[in-house]
Design a protein around this nucleic acid. Structure first.
Lengths: 97, 97
DNA sequence: CCCTTGCTTTCCATGGCGGAAAGAGTGGCG
DNA sequence: CGCCACTCTTTCCGCCATGGAAAGCAAGGG
């Protein structure tokens, strides 16, 4: 039984976004700052990539105020997981693995 | 035992080149036209990508005349295989697989 | 009020990419 | 001998993505 249809997705493929998706794929939620540090990009660059993922419907952005601090947490949406899995499957197919 | 050091390689990562490397990784040699058809790009685009791979030292281009026809065959170099394997390992790492 | 925190948006310069078309090398053919 | 076909290769061109820097903005604190 095939888990997912391999499907190349340019939105997911770009290096920073591939990393972001990869990170979010293994956690329920991750904070903006943590992702920024893990991916090693500037605030502005991360913000722009997250926006693209959000507009694609792949990432959900939740803002909250915790302990009087603004917190933005990111999470893959169901569509995001599907797209990511499909893209990874396609990479596997391409890689001949 | 880790086969290769995961290492992101932008030259390999671009979609058309990832496909080219993926194809060449599983055969000794492949002709220009066959790669062009498999990757579904125009002659000029394939030529340009192959050139990049060649300049990176990842692909060897051999020209020969067979049956009075010009034949260009492509093959991964050792360095190409190493780079491809390392990149795939990095993708695997990113994908959390 | 002004400052800090935590993103977001704008501005700008760079570079990659693909399509189209011209070019170039080689052999076949009349 | 000249022309043509076949196979890439190179050039020209415009488009779009991307990152860095800096200005913006919202909210809470001092």
């Amino acid at each position: 039984m095939t888990a997912v249809e391999p499907r190349f997705d340019a939105v997911v493929h770009a290096p920073p976004r591939l990393q972001i998706c990869g990170l979010l794929a293994v956690v329920d939620t991750m904070e903006f700052a943590a992702v920024r540090d893990a991916v090693q990009v500037s605030d502005s660059v991360l913000s722009k990539h997250v926006k693209q993922l959000e507009e694609a419907g792949y990432v959900q952005v939740r803002k909250s105020t915790i302990a009087s601090r603004q917190r933005t947490s990111l999470a893959l949406t169901k569509a995001g997981r599907v797209a990511f899995d499909a893209h990874v499957a396609e990479l596997r197919r391409i890689a001949g693995v």
